[in-house]
Amino acid sequence: MTERGSKPETPDLLEIKGLEAGYGETRVLHGVDLSIARGTFHAVLGRNGAGKSTLLKTIVGLLPPSAGEIRFAGQSIAGQSIAAIEAFRIARRGIAYVPETRDVFGALSVRENLALAARLAYARGPWNTERVFRLFPQLARRADNGGSQLSGGEQQILAIARALVMNPRLLILDEPTEGLAPILVGEIFERLGDLRGDGMTMVLVEQNLPFAARLADTASILGRGRCVWSGPAAQLSADAKLQERWLGI
């Protein structure tokens, strides 16, 4: 677990080993192992309460792990060997997180929401306000509207756009289609597909298996705070027994 001076570039952008985390006395993650290769679209599935959102919060530094290690781009960002790295430093290393709650700033306009994130962006890159407006034309039309005036779907799109202008190396999405009308689910599906085509590394937490399985290259299933299955997404969609055991109601 020691830091090596010259570390070989591993193919995995994100490596999680034995991760344990929770809230206060309640442990939610009981040793999660997960590896995500550069340029892949990875889906994390699991029933309610399996620890999916907790896992994401721990990765982005909003929740300190009690054990285990997280490495990003070959460097440790959380774990016993290092002092806790603050969330803002993890974001600056290139992890953008779109929370389930969207957290659009209601008092700021669409344009201001984007400017806020763009100014803090850890790296310059291809993504700026104009480019996200090209990807999401409906946002451009509402550029000067306040965040609180947007519909739920528009807020979701803005939350994704706001993460993109950070020019992240890893984009993490927590149930982006939850509670949205089917037409918007389709729209977001298409745009995430576009991003995948661009080679963006993404982690998607999703309850909607068909949605996730059609987008993702690889998938994991969380169950009872552990990673109980990992493999190609296609294999999961074909395995009804696996689905029944870990995802069925």
Binding site: V60, F88, A91, P99, F105, L120, M166
Partner: peptide
């Protein structure tokens, strides 16, 4: 509005 969100956006709050 949301301090945690600003941290996740990379701000040294």
């Amino acid at each position: 509005a949301n301090e945690e969100r600003m941290r996740a956006l990379g701000l040294n709050v």
